[in-house]
């Protein structure tokens, strides 16, 4: 199996931001949390399934667009996305614990 590298890296970056959005969204929006819980019994399970499904969809879309960017720049995009999204999630939960 040979994956389209740029599509894999870009789909991974977008999926990471989706995970961050869902992590924060479920804390701020009770209806979103209830909706995700109704999908899979527990909101974390729904996030896991959704993130994998989103990765497959994003990968398919990026594969069709074609590769116009380099592997290195896509790898840097993925890495910076993971670092930035990790910091955003951590900072949000610190804020949520202290002030919410």
């Amino acid at each position: 199996m040979n994956l389209n590298t740029v599509a894999t890296l870009r789909a991974g970056a977008l999926t990471i931001w989706l995970i961050a959005a869902l992590a924060i969204g479920t804390e701020l929006s009770a209806p979103l949390k209830s909706f995700l819980t109704s999908l899979a019994g527990q909101h974390w399970t729904a996030k896991s399934i959704l993130s994998f499904a989103a990765f497959v969809i994003f990968y398919t879309l990026f594969s069709r667009i074609g590769k116009s960017t380099s592997v290195l720049s896509s790898a840097i995009l993925l890495s910076l996305s993971a670092i930035a999204a990790g910091i955003v999630i951590f900072a949000f939960f610190v804020w949520h614990f202290l002030y919410a």
Partner: peptide, 28 residues
């Protein structure tokens, strides 16, 4: 409230990062 909540979400990044690294090696 801070550590588990962060861990349970940031952990989800790892399989996608791993797929990215493996894809680079496999294809290039």
């Amino acid at each position: 409230s801070v550590i588990t909540e962060t861990k349970e979400h940031v952990f989800l990044f790892l399989p996608f990062l791993a797929l990215g690294a493996w894809s680079i090696l496999k294809r290039h």
